[in-house]
Amino acid sequence: MITETGLASIVAAAAALMGGVALLTGLAAGTHVTATMCDDASPSPPRAEHPESVSAELCGQLPDIAVLAGAERGLIAVQAALRMRGIPYSWGGGNANGPTYGIGHGAHIHGFDCSGLAEYAWAKAGVQIGGHTSPQWNAGTRIPRDQIRPGDLVFFAHDPASPATIHHVGIAIDAKRMVHAPSTGSTVLIATWAGDPYREREFIGAVRPAARILAAPSSRR
């Protein structure tokens, strides 16, 4: 988990480097900073579409991720999404504040759909991306597949040549895995999409959210 003190150190170091590479661990002497996205208190992912637990191997990799200035936002976003593992899928559910009751067949389920989870995750990183896949597709920079990093949004469409047919979004853990809310009857979980024939056929691209930073809360009461 990235602590508030650690995050401040990360931001300061990133600014000082002016776009250079910084390690998330050991950025400031005496400051406890960890980049792990593994939380013992988080529910284990259920058995559903391509389920995977956060393995010891994955946990061991995360503290050593070298990130460019600004990439800590992506780490915060994917960490927030991972903490929602086990929350039910709810069609139309979820927003920047967390899980909600959905609409239609999700009206009686408190949880997230795919875009609601993405909105929540990036709101935790301080970035507003909208609550549906359409604005989310346009919420940042298109990223080549071989440059996907933690927190990037990965999109899937019925017709990969047409963004108008996008129907699903996940939050990248790396270039192969994502955390997402798959479908009714499932829950937020980790899945390997790279190499999956269904996902490969529908992969349309990845986006790294940026720019639209949430305003600070008003001090007025």
Rank of each mutant, 00 (worst) to 15 (best):
E119Y: 03
G104I: 05
L75I: 15
A107Y: 07
I65G: 03
C59W: 11
R73H: 13
Y89F: 10
L82G: 03
E49P: 02
F112A: 01
G74A: 09
Q61G: 09
G98T: 07
S115K: 02
P99T: 09
M84T: 08
E72P: 04
L58G: 03
D64Q: 12
A69K: 11
D64K: 14
G98C: 06
H105T: 08
G98W: 09
R85H: 07
D64C: 11
S115E: 04
H50K: 09
D113M: 04
N97G: 12
I65P: 00
V67H: 05
G70P: 02
L62V: 14
A77R: 03
N97K: 15
G70Q: 11
N97T: 14
L82W: 04
S55A: 14
M84Q: 13
A96T: 08
I87Q: 05
R85T: 11
E49K: 06
Q79M: 06
V67R: 09
G94C: 03
A66I: 08
R73T: 11
A48G: 13
A71C: 07
G111F: 00
L62P: 00
G98Y: 12
E119A: 13
Q61L: 15
G93A: 08
L58E: 14
H110G: 02
Q61M: 15
D64A: 13
R73Q: 12
